[in-house]
Design a protein around this nucleic acid. Structure first.
Lengths: 346, 346
DNA sequence: CTGAAAGCGCTTACAG
DNA sequence: CTGAAAGCGCTTACAG
C-alpha cells in the first residue's frame, strides 16, 4: 500500500501535502469517512474512528482550509479593520475585540487602512475573498458606500462608531456626546467656571468629530456659563497639538480653571504646558481627557478621562456579527456605555 | 443566453457569485479564455479581450482567491505576527512592515499572540492554511521550535529580533547590545560618571533580555567606572515600573547623574519621578531611553533614545521573504543599524 | 455504518 | 489565437 504524500516526496523540505486521500488509503477507508471523522460528524464505528485517527497522526494530515472554505464559505476567522495602531485607543480596541473573537473560538486577522479609502476597499476585498466569517471595521471618515457595497456582495460587516444598518451590515457605537457631557458636568460640579476646550483641527468639517464640541457648548449653556470662540482652540489631536493649544490659551490670558480635551493625547500635551508655566493641576486648573488610554493612570498627576469599555465593545461586535450571519436582517445599532473615570487631574 | 449568477438570483441580497463561467457564457468564449484575460496571460485577440472585459464589468465578476490559491499556493498576502500592539514599539514596527508590504504589492494581515505559545502556533497554522506568501513574526520569548515546525511544513518565515536560519526560515535583527553601548557612551561623553540602569524584571532569566544589562556593565568597565549591584534596579518595563525604579534609586541616595532605561516607557516613568523630586533633567540627571517611540520627541524635556529604523526593518523583512521564496536555502541573518537620537534629556 | 459521484471556482498541462 | 479535460482538496447531497 502506497501512502506517501502527494507532493515532493524526494525534496525533504515541505512535507506540506498529506490529504484526505492519503489518510483514507492508509486507514483503508474512503475519503468520505475520513472527512466524517475530521469533522466529528458521527456515523462511523469506534474502530474505524481509531484507525482513521492513527492514520491522520501518522501522515501528519492537516485539513486544507482553502479547499474547505471554497465549499462551506466559512473559515472561523474574523477580520478587524482599523485606521492604524499607533494611537493607543485603537491598539486597546484591538485587545477588546481580540478577546471576544478568541472567546467565540475564532482567529482574528487585523488590517490597517490609514484613513485611505482605496486601501480600505482593497482590504475588504481581500477579506471577502478569504471568506472570513465577517469584518469588524472602523471606517475611514465614517465612509458608508464601501460598507454597503461589500455587504451587498456577501461580506458580513459590523461598523464601529457610526450608525449604519442594512442587509448584512450592523453597527456598534458609544455615545460620544454623553461622554463629553459627563466630563463637562464633572468640571462644573467641582466648581470650575472658566472652562476651555482643546479641540480637533478638523472638528468643523467632519461628520463625526464635532460631537464633542457641540457637547461642550451645550454643557456650558446648561450650567449657565458663557461661551465664546476664545474658549475653543483647535489643533492636531496629538500631544504636540494639545501643548500648543494650551500654550495659546495661556498666552491669550483667557481666564481658565478647567480644561476639556478632545482626547488623552491633547490632555497630556496640556499637562506639559501647564507644568512648564508653573500652573498646578488640579489646584489651579482641572483637566479632563477622552478615551482613557492606559497611560492616563500612569501620568503624574493621573488623568481624569472618559472611558469606553473596550471589552464590551468587542463582545457586542462579535455577538452582532453572529446575529447578522444567522439571520441577515437589519439590526438596530448597539450602544455601549461610556463612563467618567475620575483621577488626580480633577 | 442565460447569464445570471450561480447563486440566489431571487434573494436580492448577496450577488456574491459571478464566476468565470458566467463571464465566459456572456462573452461567448470558454472559461479558459476569460482566465487568460483576467491573468494578463497574452494569447488572445484584442476584440476577444474587450468582449471579456465588458462581460466581467457587466456581471461584476471578481476572482475567487480561495479557488485560485488552492491551485497556485499563492495569495499576494503576508502575515505579520507580533506579541501585542499596545506597546508603541510594536505598533510602530507594524507601520514599517506595512509600508514595505504595500510597496511590494501585498496585503498584510496582522495577528497578535500575547506571548502565548499555543496561540502563536495556532496563528501560524491559520496563516499556513490561508496560503499566505509568508509570515513575518516576533516569536514569543524567542521560541524556535514552532518556527522550524511550520517552516518545514511549507510556511516561509522571517523572524524578528532573534538569530535563526534554516530551510524556509530567515531572520532580521538589530544589534541591541550596540544600541545600549551607544547610549552609555553618550552619557559618559557628556561627562556623567554616576550611572544607573533601570532594567527589566525578567532580565536575569530570559534569553533575549539581558543584553542591555550586559552592555551597561561592559560600558561602565570600558569607561573606567565602577559597577555595583545598587546601580541596577529591575521593574516591569512600564511607566509605573520606571517611576518606581527611579524612586528606589533616589530613596537609596545612590549618587546619580545619568540614567539608562531599558525602554522608553521606563524612561518616562523616571522623568516623572525626577520631576516630582525636583531634580532637573538634564542639568542634574541625564536620561536615555530605548526604542525611540514617537512619544520621545513630544515629552518635556524630549527624550534621548536608541532608535531602530522601522522602515528599514520592514523592507529587509519583506525582501528576505522574497529571497527565501525564490530559493529556499539557508540565509544569513540580516542586521539593521541602530542609532542614538540625542534630544533635550541629555 | 459506509462509499461513489458530483462539484466549489479556478489553473494547469495539453491539443488543436 | 482558442478550448476540452483533468484536477487543486475538500464537502455535499444521495444511495445503499
Amino acid at each position: 500500500m502506497v501512502t506517501s504524500c502527494s507532493h515532493s516526496v524526494h525534496t525533504g523540505v515541505m512535507s506540506n501535502g498529506a490529504t484526505l486521500h492519503d489518510v483514507a488509503a492508509l486507514a483503508g477507508v474512503s475519503p468520505r469517512t475520513v472527512s466524517r471523522v475530521v469533522n466529528d460528524e458521527a456515523g462511523f464505528g469506534e474502530a474505524t474512528r481509531l484507525r482513521v485517527l492513527e492514520a491522520i497522526e501518522k501522515v501528519g494530515y492537516r485539513p486544507n482550509m482553502l479547499a474547505r472554505a471554497l465549499i462551506t464559505r466559512r473559515t472561523g476567522t474574523v477580520g478587524l479593520v482599523v485606521p492604524q495602531m499607533v494611537d493607543p485607543f485603537f491598539a486597546e480596541l484591538v485587545v477588546g475585540v481580540q478577546a471576544a473573537a478568541k472567546a467565540s473560538g475564532r482567529t482574528m486577522l487585523i488590517a490597517t487602512h490609514d484613513d485611505d479609502l482605496a486601501e480600505f476597499d482593497s482590504i475588504l476585498e481581500t477579506l471577502s475573498s478569504f471568506a472570513v466569517d465577517g469584518a469588524i471595521v472602523y471606517s475611514p471618515q465614517g465612509e458608508r458606500a464601501t460598507l454597503f457595497k461589500h455587504a451587498q456582495r456577501g461580506l458580513t460587516i459590523v461598523a464601529f462608531g457610526m450608525e449604519i444598518s442594512g442587509p448584512n451590515v450592523g453597527s456598534v457605537l458609544w455615545d460620544v456626546s454623553r461622554g463629553a457631557e459627563l466630563g463637562m458636568e464633572h468640571l462644573v460640579q467641582i466648581g470650575r467656571t472658566n472652562l476651555v476646550m482643546l479641540s480637533h483641527t478638523d472638528a468643523v468639517n467632519s461628520q463625526l468629530l464635532p460631537r464633542r464640541e457641540t457637547a461642550f457648548r451645550h454643557s456650558l449653556q446648561t450650567a449657565g456659563l458663557e461661551f465664546s470662540e476664545a474658549r475653543v482652540v483647535r489643533r492636531d489631536p496629538t500631544i504636540d497639538g494639545g501643548r500648543e493649544a494650551m500654550q495659546e490659551i495661556l498666552a491669550a490670558r483667557t481666564p481658565v480653571d478647567g480644561v476639556f480635551a478632545y482626547n488623552d493625547a491633547m490632555a497630556i500635551g496640556a499637562l506639559q504646558a501647564l507644568a512648564v508655566a508653573g500652573i498646578r493641576v488640579p489646584h489651579d486648573v482641572a483637566l479632563v481627557g477622552f478615551n482613557d488610554i492606559a497611560m492616563c493612570s500612569a501620568l503624574v498627576p493621573s488623568l481624569t478621562s472618559v472611558r469606553l469599555d473596550r471589552s464590551a465593545v468587542g463582545r457586542e461586535a462579535v455577538a452582532l456579527l453572529d446575529r447578522i450571519r444567522s439571520a441577515p436582517h437589519d439590526y438596530e445599532p448597539v450602544y455601549v456605555d461610556v463612563e467618567l473615570i475620575v483621577r488626580e487631574s480633577t
